[in-house]
């Protein structure tokens, strides 16, 4: 299997789906000539032309609103919201329009659109360009939320997202664009709502998303040296959530740590923890530990940003406190 980066995997998924389905088009700020703020859409304008690769003004409401209208009218838009933080600018179009049209109209409409957006801190981009807001989206019935952690997952899940007839928010952690990994050759896709076990272990389950999957895998190495084997579960999709895989893992290990980069309070980790308590309480041999960012806007100074971000040490400490 060839090694490509997370960014290349997304680029390749976009190209493949655009070649396959003439109804797929992309739009967003600087996605054309510029190739995307992070370079994800490079080469698309050259291959598919300005009819299918549309640079938009800096107007998120128009980007998402027009995508909803185009999707309702039968196209399959893949809009990009440059930074996830900007979803606040167009939230009505996401959660009152895209999410609800099917239900409100009694099942007579479908809104097949995939909003790609970059989340995550680590770039010194401060409070308005670094957030992980997946919990907002996962709270809204009608939306699907995908949050991959590897190039192979990103490609397979993006292809499934684009083919899905529901509105999907596809969240790309910006600090992972350069991460390499092997990706299957030829056409493949990964179904939405299937978690993946990134490392098997018997002593504790660590459910981690996006960048935190990599932190959890690093922590697993450290813990293994001390004879503690953790199982790293990456849900990959937060809505729908693969409860079964998480519960199975907890049944096996009896211990659970949930970690995400988003602020801990009101985060998806609380939902996962509550689900395990409700549906798998008997499996638990210890209290559940949640790890997330502290309740503060994301700071600018590098040392503060580092202090803000959850990481490997937090996971090691949490697991050790349980076993």
């Amino acid at each position: 299997m060839p090694e490509i980066t997370f960014l290349e995997a997304i680029n390749s998924a976009l190209k493949e789906e655009m070649r396959k389905d003439p109804n797929v088009f992309i739009l967003g700020e600087d996605v054309g000539i510029f190739g995307g703020c992070f370079g994800v859409t490079q080469g698309l304008l050259d291959e598919f032309g300005p009819e299918r690769v549309l640079d938009t003004p800096i107007t998120e409401t128009a980007i998402i609103g027009a995508s909803v209208g185009a999707a309702a009218a039968g196209l399959r838009p893949v809009p990009e919201i440059m930074f996830m933080d900007f979803l606040g600018v167009c939230l009505d179009e996401v959660f009152n329009q895209a999410a609800k049209m099917r239900y409100m109209f009694g099942g007579k409409a479908k809104i097949p659109m995939t909003i790609r957006t970059a989340c995550g801190a680590g770039l010194g981009a401060a409070a308005q360009h670094s957030q992980s807001l997946e919990a907002w989206i996962a709270h809204i019935p009608g939306l699907k939320v995908v949050m991959p952690s590897t190039p192979a997952d990103a490609k397979g899940l993006l292809i499934s997202s684009i083919r899905d007839d529901n509105p999907v928010v596809f969240i790309e952690h910006k600090m992972m664009y350069g991460i390499s990994g092997s990706v299957p050759e030829g056409e493949y896709s990964i179904p939405l709502g299937k978690a993946d076990i990134k490392r098997e272990g018997k002593d504790a389950t660590v459910v981690a998303t996006a960048m935190m999957v990599h932190k959890a895998l690093a922590a697993a190495e450290t813990l293994a040296e001390e004879g503690i084997e953790i199982e790293v579960v990456d849900p990959r999709c937060l809505q729908p959530l693969d409860k079964e895989t998480i519960l199975h893992s907890v049944e096996k290990t009896g211990r659970l740590v949930v970690i995400h980069e988003a602020v801990k309070i009101g985060g998806v980790g609380g939902e996962i923890a509550a689900m395990v308590v409700e549906e798998g309480f008997d499996y638990l041999d210890a209290p559940i530990k949640r790890i997330g960012a502290p309740f503060t806007p994301i700071p600018f100074a590098s040392n503060l940003e580092n202090a803000y971000l959850p990481g490997e040490e937090d996971i090691v400490a949490a697991v050790k406190s349980l076993v």
């Binding site: 088009f25 009819e51 409401t61 128009a62 998402i64 609103g65 027009a66 995508s67 909803v68 209208g69 185009a70 999707a71 309702a72 009218a73 039968g74 196209l75 838009p77 009505d92 179009e93 009152n96 329009q97």
Partner: peptide, 18 residues
């Protein structure tokens, strides 16, 4: 939602043009 229609219409018009 008051004022939600214009971007939706722009998108539908885009579909017509596309």
């Amino acid at each position: 939602i008051v004022g939600a229609g214009p971007p939706l219409a722009a998108g539908a018009a885009f579909a017509n043009k596309y």
